[in-house]
Design a protein around this nucleic acid. Structure first.
Lengths: 353, 353
DNA sequence: CTGAAAGCGCTAACAC
DNA sequence: GTGTTAGCGCTTTCAG
């Protein structure tokens, strides 16, 4: 019933055009060594037959697939999916296809099948977009050594001779702290992410160092650990109010937890930012509409992703030319602070509140 | 410096094991026609050489890649990425790899390059996970006809002889309306999504029909159109308060816009759910932590995705066996209502508020 | 049970 | 400029 036409291949085009497959190959690869007439004739046949070269066959013979493997985790959360979106945009721009794998858990360490699936499909490189958590990087020093393709890592502690592209989480935390201090807050608590996450540790460290440098004391009970969710933020802040009654502000390690904090503060009848100042991290789309609008540290995941794709392609190109880049460099990008009402205690002159 | 070992191929394995490549092929494909000893010897060599078959070469000769193309859009938003996550899980389970393409815009109609990129890499099927908007489906009746692989569509109006897997948006809207009516609300407004979205139209229709069936009147000025963002929700509700001062509740077409609504209502000193009841749609993770917690319609995107992957694989298998499924069926799944404080005006006995 | 030959769709290296 | 030969890594006949 349904008419399905099989896609034409290079042989058919060659036969119809009355040339060899090699000549067709030259035409589709824009080789200069073809006469005008031949080129035109072949192109017409290509049009007529709607011939499209097989990327698969090309990959096999060229030993180059123009495909990147992307390994991610927690796509149902907004951070990882924003990153992935940045990767798709950058890859499209660079003319690369994307083979996607999602780990079932953030701390999955069963990476062998992932690598095999990707390698058996001849990806030219891998972008490891899973955040560093616990021991889920234990393989990094071993695995890539016998790999003949490059890997670029996102969101992990930079190491010797691997390429990491990441936001500077520590700097972001310091920016949040400086802002709170400028606003006159002095007893600043912290709600951290899960401390087996590298990013969570970086942000917490910034809180500690920020206080220390301001000559303020840091105590364990001034910090509470959440799991990034709004629920955990609500729970953590309850605990913090108990352990640290004098607290006048909180640096919360992400926006979702900050949302939970806002809810609890509201229930307790606390005014924000007067009674308690709040700064989040991430700048998710909704944070401008929290009550009150949330001050937060913005990570430009699009930019990170773009750089990561460009970096890996650069390495692929170099290797292809036989030039192995001797020292792989990590790239750490600065975040930006987005000031909104939740922390704006000092009303400045022209300051839009 | 760095030692990179090229991956072994089937020839090397055959040579080392002292057999032909076909025998190796039989072993890796678990064919029964190999003697125990030969099999064992070959397997040992495979281990030693860490041989892994090339999926690429296999795809070429078998004309089957065990790879699905996924086309998505708006990955930076939570809906599309939850869907994608469901697809990755289901595909992994089924042993299929995923080639990912993201359209630059939701209403992109330049689909030819997308198809070519996917087809040239020999995907076995395509999951079109872009919501139906405006004319971005104009190609559906044409394009797939001359395609020799199946397509399954998500989030679109079911049509003859194509396979759509979707949540029943209309039913979800009706559930929201029934709930509000049960709670005694009578003057129910609606904030719709952009009406060029099929899903937005379905939800609005449910609002209209819900009112009509309850014997209540429907007026244009009782509805305002947003663009799914919190900002637009805030704007839409301002307009609605003006146009419909008697309004006692609002069915908002998604949770993000509902967040904007909550903010405006709060600023106006309105109590929720007493002065105004709010129901959202989507059940995003944060909605349980809005102020107050948001009643909403839950879409199980994981389930939709799982069904979609299973369906497409079923069709692929059938075609592979030469049995073209004559009539492609669409599958429409029911959502569920999640009741929270924002709409709970009637305090029942055992009802947890 | 095993192997030889052919070929999936394309391109590299060489002839002419 | 163009065609021929060989082969990427694998599987599918078909002999034996």
């Amino acid at each position: 019933m349904r008419q399905r036409t099989k896609r034409a291949n290079i042989k058919e085009v060659a036969a119809v055009a009355g040339v060899s497959t090699q000549t067709v190959s030259r035409v589709i690869n824009a080789s200069p060594d073809v006469s005008q007439e031949t080129r035109k004739r072949v192109q017409e046949v290509i049009e007529k037959l709607e011939y499209r070269p097989s990327a698969l066959a090309r990959s096999l013979i060229r030993q180059r697939s123009y495909t990147l493997g992307v390994v991610t985790a927690g796509l149902k959360y907004i951070g990882p999916s924003r990153t992935l979106s940045g990767i798709t945009v950058a890859a499209e721009e660079a003319g690369y296809a994307l083979l996607l794998k999602e780990l079932p858990h953030f701390d999955d360490n069963n990476i062998e099948p992932i690598f095999q699936a990707l390698l058996s499909r001849h990806v030219d490189g891998i972008i490891w977009a899973v955040p560093e958590i616990g021991e889920n990087r234990s393989w990094v020093r071993q695995r890539p050594v016998d790999l003949d393709i490059p890997i670029v890592y996102l969101s992990m502690e930079p190491q010797e001779n691997i390429c990491v592209v990441s936001i500077n989480n520590y700097l972001g935390g310091r920016m949040a702290m400086s802002h709170l201090l400028e606003q006159g807050y002095r007893t600043i608590g912290h709600i951290s992410g899960p401390l087996d996450w590298w990013e969570a540790r970086q942000r917490k460290l910034a809180w500690q160092d920020g206080l220390k440098e301001a000559g303020l004391k840091v105590q364990d009970k001034h910090c509470s650990e959440g799991n990034w969710s709004s629920a955990s933020g609500a729970q953590a802040v309850e605990k913090l109010f108990e352990q640290y009654p004098d607290m006048d502000s909180i640096f919360v390690a992400n926006d979702q937890m900050a949302l939970g904090v806002l809810q609890v503060a509201h229930q307790r009848g606390m005014r924000i930012p007067e009674d308690i100042g709040i700064v989040g991290f991430d700048n998710i789309l909704e944070s401008a509409y929290f009550l009150p609008a949330l001050t937060t540290v913005q990570q430009d995941q699009y930019h990170v992703a773009k750089i990561a794709v460009e970096e890996i392609i650069k390495i692929i190109e170099l290797r292809w030319q036989g030039l192995d880049p001797v020292d792989l460099q990590s790239i750490i990008l600065p975040p930006t602070l987005v000031v909104r009402q939740s922390s704006l205690r000092v009303k400045e002159g022209g300051q839009k509140q």
